[in-house]
Design a protein around this nucleic acid. Structure first.
Lengths: 203, 203
DNA sequence: ATATAGTTTAACTAATGAGTCAAATATATA
DNA sequence: TATATATTTGACTCATTAGTTAAACTATAT
């Protein structure tokens, strides 16, 4: 039954995604995935021959999802200001729903740096770049954004959004004593980060 | 011989530090550490009974080193401006010399969030906090920094410095095509980050 | 009802890696 | 040099885990 086939395969894939995100490649046992999917180990190997194949499939999917979240920055028809506000609102909301992604991702790109480099070679970053310049040439000039500072700014924007989730337990450890709630901190960060970046860009 | 003892123990500890940073707890074999130290596996267990004990010792040391790097922010006698410039210069230089630390650290705090929370409970963050307020009360007011935004700003500062190292392979993957060199990007970041933060703080 | 193809399983193998230990070696001391 | 003590090792055990396989189960078509 191809119908049921798909269901089982998807169920395994989703379970693998959850377990891999929480425990990483090295920390995950095939048994954990089988248990989570409510099936047994051999069936896992029936659908995905090896742990590595299963992990690669999961990683590719996750990497795709993560990078697609940056896409609106390039193709939405908004002013630079609005794009930055839009980005932080949407991206942090996405990470609220997937708080384990940054930790998982950083772990895996350090465990196997070549994989992500190969993955990124598929992305035509230069055309995204010139698209951005074409869309916002005026604003970029107004904000004194040069070819040299643009990468620094982009990395800063990504840092502001991603880092707090990657360092969550540290922040919780520090915040606990001061009566700050991580969840609320993140909620406030959606607007804080946008305002902060925009203030840094404007004279 | 207690003298020789110390030497061997230190040699093991340093080897363990190097290997753990590069491969993480899960990815490290006791054999790897023994080989790196030029001794055999049993001797490892003679000095550090289990892998977990050895790892904990290494982790505590590293966590201590990392957090001590933030100390000058609290006890140097500098203006807020100079402190921020000083911080990025010193902290990024430290990470240039230890580029694997952020990845290692983020990996381990996600693998075992409780450990770092216990570690942080030893730090009296509240007194550091009020120290900062006492030192820079005037400037904080001038820059419109409130009790609500201070945590957001601190996290932003840490993000700007740490994140590029944690995401190094991603940046290298993206930069490669654009003719940007990671090493140079980091060098420039020492001043860029300070200027960027200060501009965001000033009206 | 029975044969067939598609699913699922329990029990297995083989490899790996943490941790142990008795014996060997080196070192210090008398 | 002989003895005692400290240090180091090779070879082991035991537990865990990825991956295999033969058999059992299920649904459907004839």
């Amino acid at each position: 039954m191809t119908e049921n086939d798909k269901l089982t395969e998807e169920k395994i894939f989703e379970s693998a995604t959850v377990v891999f995100i929480n425990k990483g490649m090295d920390g995950t046992r095939m048994k954990d995935i089988a248990d989570h999917a409510g099936i047994n180990k051999a069936l896992l190997h029936y659908y995905f021959r090896t742990k590595e194949r299963l992990f690669n499939a999961v990683f590719e999917k996750i990497a795709g999802t993560m990078f697609r979240k940056f896409a609106p920055v390039f193709d939405k028809d908004l002013s630079l200001d609005d794009k930055i506000r839009f980005f932080f609102r949407e991206h942090i909301t996405f990470l609220q729903q997937n708080p384990g992604l940054p930790g998982f991702f950083i772990n895996e790109i350090n465990r196997n740096p070549e994989r992500i480099k190969k993955f990124l070679s598929k992305i035509d970053i230069k055309s995204l770049w010139s698209m951005l310049c074409a869309q916002h040439g005026e604003e970029l000039k107004k904000y004194n954004i040069t070819e040299e500072t643009l990468p620094q700014i982009m990395v800063s924007i990504a840092s502001m959004s991603v880092f707090p989730f990657a360092a969550r337990s540290v922040l919780e450890g520090l915040f606990g004593k001061m009566g700050i709630d991580f969840t609320q901190f993140i909620e406030e960060r959606k607007t804080f980060a946008a305002d902060f970046i925009l203030k840094a860009l404007k004279e």
